[in-house]
Nucleic acid binder design. Structure first.
Lengths: 337, 337
DNA sequence: CTGAAAGCGCTAACAT
DNA sequence: ATGTTAGCGCTTTCAG
């Protein structure tokens, strides 16, 4: 009743009100099994009455755990936040974490000062890290993984073997299936707009395209590389068109790039899918609203984020968890192919 | 030379190596003015040699500051992460913070359990909060602002007066200008697709539309409300078309909604801008790639995020800062109007 | 300008 | 099952 809302209530105040020791309060707060129901009750009542909230810093200092995870975002990845795929992954991560006691810190990894990132990560600020959009210029996060629990979204470059925890899709196979759609439609001159070749997704999707073509006894069509953005796709399409090599179909390594390609095609009066059929990758929300709507590879981006978070938490808490999770993809057929 | 990389170096180890007391090390680390250059030097050398990184939890516990900010995201805002506008704002926030010592924590505010959010925010986990996409169903963040430094991105609902720190654009005026573009083109039946009417941006943009019409002596055209999403815009457009009230122009309260409207129009064989001219709002990256390209109100989303972060940091550190920042907007004319 | 001493609020052995 | 005793690593008066 006599509720002194002087300042932040401490564990000690709760102990006093409940008539137990601080240890017991701590045990209740941390859901330790060995506390009598009566004590638990008294403590909970006191916590309620006081509106007690444990102090994170103190807890963290004493327990040497931070209950915080970092989401590392490479600064130089063009328009990271603008890419719907990454946005969805972040969404998934945040959603999963909301059901746990972990907090998510956004960490922009400045290329100019990689030391700052490394220090933050190794300075005991977080219990683990999620790494998205890893490319070969990045500081060696793989080395970091030896010090700190780390999970990668998308396999890191040159991931020989099972060193790391990663959540990914089978990019090679998905690209192969996407390309096969084009082949099955009777196209024989199939070009590709590939993503950055310093990222695994960029590399693997070209490989899938190439391998599907080879399996079908077809020659690879023209090939252009670009940033994983609308502008990158538009530029690549212009180069493809200006290159002179004919093609009647295109596999684009991302929907964003496909949208850019689409707008160039439209400008130049080239019809899709009649003159060139297109298959994209990602199944961005907008794929259903483009002109024409986009046939594409759908990947479960939100679920992928959730899984990343889940794997990292398990890793931190010492629960058994697979090192590699491959999420399923599927082709979504719309108007563009 | 004899570098014992046993474990995380502590301030005490630095002090020992530098031959000073822990207090002095602390002063150097915190850039206190009253330390001799010699001492500062010795300490810095020791820090360098040891690779010392201050422990956040300890620092936070002792100083009662967390150096962390929360970005509060309402869970029920449909597709928050998918909206390019919010993505850009977050980008801006993160960019600005990267140049400071503050960390950004993503906090999903579950509607089911608003207490959890409130406790987190008031439990000393962060030094301040950034609130985006505030709508009237949200728990009262305005009350929270009395306890914790808070800055709003977009004015909160029913923000009577200058209670809060907010960074915003002049939505009413921007919508008025957008509508005037349509009026100047000679359109007389101007419809609008409005955003959720429980958010200030939704409300204010309708008001601007209405007022521009009134100023021109025109009757308001048909009016539909929808979520700030592509699907929301598509649905609203369908209702507009099925409603039977004729219109030859449309002001859409967001580009995402405009894209949805555009795809419905295309499906139904209605030409843009010939049959209906369209002006959107946001200038999403994609506005330059839609069919047709979108005339729209450009708002500086990244800069808005940067400013939010800047205001919050100033507020926390007790530096003088304006309560209200209005960012500039401008019309970008493309093909749709 | 620098050092000594006293915590910040909590957890974690170790007893009991 | 619960209480006691030490700190976790840093900041912060307060002397000197």
């Amino acid at each position: 009743m006599a509720n002194e809302t002087t300042s932040a209530p401490t564990l000690e105040m709760v102990a006093a009100l409940a008539g137990v020791s601080r240890s017991t309060v701590s045990r209740v707060v941390n859901a330790s099994p060995k506390v009598t129901p009566e004590a638990t009750d008294a403590v909970n009542r006191a916590i309620e009455a006081l509106g007690y909230v444990p102090n994170r810093a103190a807890r963290s200092l004493a327990s040497r755990k931070t209950q915080a995870l970092a989401l590392v975002i490479p600064e130089n990845t063009a328009k990271f936040f603008t890419d719907p795929f990454f946005a969805s992954v972040i969404h998934g991560i945040a959603m999963h974490l909301a059901s746990t006691d972990y907090t998510l810190s956004l960490l922009i990894a400045s290329e100019a000062n990689p030391e700052k990132t490394r220090r933050y990560l190794q300075g005991g600020n977080v219990d683990g890290a999620l790494i998205l959009s890893h490319h070969s210029d990045d500081i060696s996060y793989r080395a970091l993984a030896r010090t700190l629990p780390v999970v990668f979204g998308g396999r890191p470059m040159s991931d020989e073997g099972t060193d790391n925890y990663v959540v990914d899709v089978d990019n090679v196979e998905a690209a192969r299936i996407a390309t096969r759609v084009l082949i099955d439609r009777g196209h024989t001159n199939i070009a590709t707009i590939a993503g950055r070749q310093d990222m695994a997704a960029g590399l693997d999707r070209v490989e899938g395209w190439r391998s599907a073509l080879a399996d079908a006894g077809l020659q690879p069509g023209p090939f252009e590389v670009g940033e994983f953005t609308v502008a990158g796709g538009a530029n690549a399409m212009n180069r493809l068109l200006d290159g002179g090599e004919p093609f009647d179909a295109l596999f684009s390594a991302s929907d964003q790039m496909a949208f850019g390609a689409l707008s160039v095609l439209r400008e130049r009066g080239i019809r899709v899918p009649d003159d060139v059929a297109i298959v994209g990758f990602d199944d961005d929300d907008f794929a259903v609203n483009s002109t024409p709507t986009l046939t594409t590879v759908s990947q479960p981006s939100v679920a992928l984020g959730e899984r990343m978070a889940e794997v990292l938490v398990s890793l931190i808490e010492g629960e058994p968890i697979e090192k590699l999770t491959i999420m399923p993809t599927r082709i979504v057929t719309r108007e563009s192919a």
